[in-house]
Design a binder for these strands. Structure first.
Lengths: 134, 134
DNA sequence: CTAATAACAGTAATCATTATCATAATTATG
DNA sequence: CATAATTATGATAATGATTACTGTTATTAG
């Protein structure tokens, strides 16, 4: 069995650069739309393949929130997120990491707890303004 | 504008009874498979419609974990869940509610934080046994 | 009892994502 | 450096979960 290696690709490089340049945690389709400005004939499948590959290897984070569309984050250190119930945008929440949470869960659970995902939700400031206008 | 009311249905009654009888947090399809034993010609659409309706009204909880399939829980008081990365099952994690978490997030965020979802992940005890066998 | 309306079963449509496949780009090797 | 091996790509088809549509049935109000 030969372990398969990773080859360089222009497309993957552009995707990771874009993810590192934004704190907006875009969806696969948002990444795709941006990439098309740089690489007009890039395929949506290429974007999905590279995002999934980088998420699997730990290079980026896959954020699952409302069960509809995943978001991606190039910042892999422990931090938390907020999803707007109105527009679906994902933003950072600057609270301190809850280091003991997984440890606490490990102690009480009969299962092997490895990770925890914390997702806040509510209304983002932009959607709040819009709702006041109406 | 007339507010639309809710009418009784045999199907919805059976769905909520089933959800209340289990702590396994089934998916819509698992609910459907169970319902077919009681109501053989029930439609999958009916199951989805009633689950969505009850989740929207707060009667049950919709649990989103891996972005693939939602799970449902008739217990709506604050508690936490674990999803197995191997088989996808969802189980309860009996740690005490983190009451201050949403309050803390409200203080530091420029958005209107209302709720938080906490999802642990790892390997469930059943999958652990299977992996040891191999 | 009858009219109004919500819920139903069955099915088609949608959306996000993954798989397939022939071609192109990258890397290894003689 | 030439060529073989292998991974990545673009284009598109397929999948899986969920929602929408439609004609019919059940529930409820008058």
């Amino acid at each position: 069995m030969t372990t398969k290696s990773t080859k360089y690709s222009h497309q993957r490089e552009a995707i990771i650069k874009y993810l590192e340049s934004t704190t907006n945690h875009p969806t696969a389709d948002e990444v795709y739309q941006h990439m098309r400005e740089l690489i007009p004939n890039i395929s949506l499948g290429t974007v999905y393949r590279n995002l999934s590959q980088m998420a699997a290897s730990g290079r980026i984070l896959r954020l699952t929130a409302d069960g509809k569309t995943d978001h991606f984050d190039a910042c892999t250190s422990t931090h938390y997120h907020f999803m707007c119930k109105s527009c679906g945008c994902v933003r950072d929440i600057p609270i301190a990491p809850l280091d003991s949470l997984v440890e606490d869960a490990k102690k009480v659970s009969e299962h092997v707890v490895e990770d925890v995902s914390i997702m806040f939700s509510g209304t983002c400031k932009d959607c709040l303004v819009k709702s006041v206008d109406n």
